[in-house]
Amino acid sequence: MKRRQFISTGIKAGIVAGMVPVVSAGHQQQKPFDLVAVKGGEPGAMFDMAIRSLGGLSAFVMKGQTVLVKPNIGWDAPPERAANTNAGLVKKIVALCVQQGAKKVIVFDKTCNDWNKCYKNSGIQQAVTSAGGIMLPGNSEQNYKPVTIPGAVKLKGVKVHEAYISADVIINVPVLKHHSGTTLTIGMKNLMGVVWDRWFWHEHDLHRCIAEFVLYRKPTLNVVDAHRVIMRNGPRGVSVEDVTEMNSLIVSRDIVAADAAATKLFGKEPDEIGHIKIAHNLKLGSMLLDKLNIDRIKMG
C-alpha cells in the first residue's frame, strides 16, 4: 500500500512538474522568475496573480502533502492594526493548498501575547478553519523538538516546533513591519515564531541567530504581506496611526530576496538590516535585487 502510494504520488508529481515549464513556455519564453512583486489589489487576489506567475501552486504543493503555513500571529491586535499577517491572505493560501489536495494544512505561531487572543482577534483562526486548515497551538513545549543547525556559529541547536520539522512544504507568510529590535521584521524574523526559546536569540547576537536559523531549513515559498504596514512603534504598534497602506505583496522561493525586496518597499536598503546581510553572506539567498529576474505586476 505504502509503496503503491509512493509510486502514484511520484507519477503525479512528475506530471505536474513536467507541465509547469510547458505552461510557462507557451506563455512567455524566458527563465522562471526569482521573485514576483504585486501592487494594487486585495491580498488574496494579489497572491493569485503572483502564484500564477510562478507556475501555479502546483509547482510547490502536491497532493497528499502536509503543508505548514506560517503567518505572523504574534500580537493580540485587531486586523486594522496590521500587527499580524492579513487574515484574508492566509485564508487564500490555505484554501489553495486544500484545493491542491494537501493532506493537512497546518497553521500556528508561537505568539508573544496570549495565543488564544492572538489567534482569535487577528481573525486568522476563523480564516484558517473556514478554509479547511488546522490551527495548532504553539504554546506547549512538548511540541518543540531539539535540532542541530549545521554550519551555525551562534545558534548551534534550537528547539523547533515539530510541524516545522515534519511538514513537506513550508509557506512562510510574514507581514512587513517596523521592528524596534531588528529595524524590520519580514520573512526570516517571522521564523522566530517556530522555535521555543527566543530569549537565547536575543542574548546571543540576534541578527546572526535569525540568519543562521535559515541554515536549518528554508521555507518552500515566502509570501510577504505588505498590504498594510506598521511604519513605526513596531512590531506591536500602538494605534492604527502607525499603519500605512502599501497594498503590495512579494512572493519568492528565496527568503533573502523576499526580505530584501520588502525592505526596499519600506524605504530602507537591504544591507542596513543585519540579518539580511548575514544571510546573504551565508549564501542563503540573494539580496542583490538588480541581479534577480523579477516579475512586477500592477493590478487595478
Partner: peptide, 27 residues
C-alpha cells in the same frame, strides 16, 4: 555584548520603552 536586542521595546504596548540610537548603528 554590543549586539541588537530590543525584546523589551518589542513587547511594550505603549512604547514607553523605546529604542534610541546608541553606537555603531545599535539601538
Amino acid at each position: 555584548d554590543e549586539t541588537s536586542c530590543g525584546a523589551c521595546s518589542e513587547h511594550c504596548p505603549t512604547k514607553a520603552v523605546n529604542m534610541v540610537p546608541y553606537k555603531n548603528d545599535l539601538m
